[in-house]
Simulated assay, not measured.
Amino acid sequence: MLQNTEPTFRKLSNSQIALHPNPKGIIQFIGSFIFGSFPAWAYKYLYQYLFDQGYSLILYRFPLNPIQFNHWEVSFGLLKEQYLLKTEIIKILREENQPDDVINTYSNPANYLWLGHSLGCKYIILLEISSNEPTKRSQILQKCLDKKDADEAIKQIALIESVQQTSKGIINQLLPETESVNQFFIKNQSSILLAPEISNTVRILRSSWRISNSLANPNQKQTECLISSSTELFNLTGIISFNLDCIAEDDVMFMVKQIKHKRFPALHKELEGSHFQPLSISIENLGQSIVYFFDELKSR
């Protein structure tokens, strides 16, 4: 499996993975609406570049459902998938007698990176918010959400904690000589947001007119409240935007403003292109920026 230099994807659970023979990190990718349901095909050239740079790839898919407005549900589903995939990958590596240093790369949570595009960024942001210290997290959820939604989110997080413990137990059995690392959800994992779309609004021809989706959960106001209230988080977040983007422009401005107040200097770069530039054949500048950002975030 690990002798091939091309990103040959295999289906594992509901996702697709391509394991590099000498991984410098594991990029977990969540794509945009529609294209995120067919990521291996839609982002083909971007994946080829990142694999060539030494990254293993995990492509999370979410169902192509135009009326799926519960973004909490999607995010929590992706997190459960992460724990399942991690244990399954380690099982595969053990069965194939891969070297200990390769297996240890996949067992260490710090080597898992997040890359999102458009709506996929919102799912990563919600996972980051869910990774806060429990008491603080509950306070923020209750502050920013309706009581019913806050109670449901807290309930779902508790259920995922049990999934996490199960995964940890399996990995400890597979790797008894490896010291277990405590990792709460995606805390302390680097993430890069490509043209983040968190408000579910579309700007028409760079005018003041907007098309908005008021059914999204959490909605724009709630999402912005969750982000701005999570002052301890997003220290390992980078943002890449595009100068002709008329979909995520406002959300990029909001997110850049938020990371400017964090522990480290803000990591933001604007490239030429439209909102869907990551799906383009010409991705060298974008790929170079992603690699540079991950290297910079790793040093923090």
Rank of each mutant, 00 (worst) to 15 (best):
H71W: 05
L244E: 03
Q220I: 06
S180Y: 05
P7V: 04
S56D: 07
T105P: 13
L286A: 03
Q48G: 13
S212E: 09
L12K: 00
I281L: 14
P23M: 08
G31C: 14
K80N: 06
Q222D: 07
I240P: 07
A266F: 00
H71T: 14
R137P: 07
G287P: 06
R94A: 09
L113W: 14
F29V: 10
D101H: 15
A266I: 08
I17P: 01
N200S: 11
P134K: 00
Y47R: 00
S15T: 01
I247K: 07
N65K: 12
T237S: 03
S228H: 01
R61E: 11
D295M: 13
I198T: 07
E6I: 09
I192P: 02
I259H: 07
A266Y: 01
K80W: 05
L2C: 01
G25K: 06
L267I: 15
H261D: 05
N243C: 08
I259V: 02
T105M: 13
G120R: 00
E177C: 08
K148L: 11
N104G: 05
S299A: 08
E88L: 12
R300N: 02
K136G: 08
A266P: 11
E6Y: 07
T166L: 00
V256K: 12
S190A: 14
L236V: 08
H117L: 04
K44R: 11
F264I: 13
P196S: 02
G273L: 11
L57Y: 01
F242R: 09
V252M: 09
I58W: 03
F185D: 00
A266K: 07
A158S: 14
Q173D: 12
V74C: 01
N243T: 15
L64T: 06
Q156H: 06
S162W: 01
P218Q: 02
L205N: 12
V202E: 01
S214K: 11
L174H: 05
Y43I: 09
E284P: 10
K86L: 07
E179I: 04
E272V: 15
T105F: 08
A42M: 03
K221Y: 10
L159N: 02
E96V: 05
S37R: 04
S131V: 09
I259F: 09
T231H: 03
E284L: 13
Y112G: 04
D52G: 15
I67T: 03
C225F: 00
R210Q: 03
S207F: 03
C225S: 11
L145R: 00
F276I: 14
I27V: 10
R10P: 05
L12F: 02
A18G: 11
L244V: 08
S208N: 14
Q164K: 11
R300W: 13
N70V: 01
L271V: 05
I239Q: 01
K86N: 13
I30Q: 10
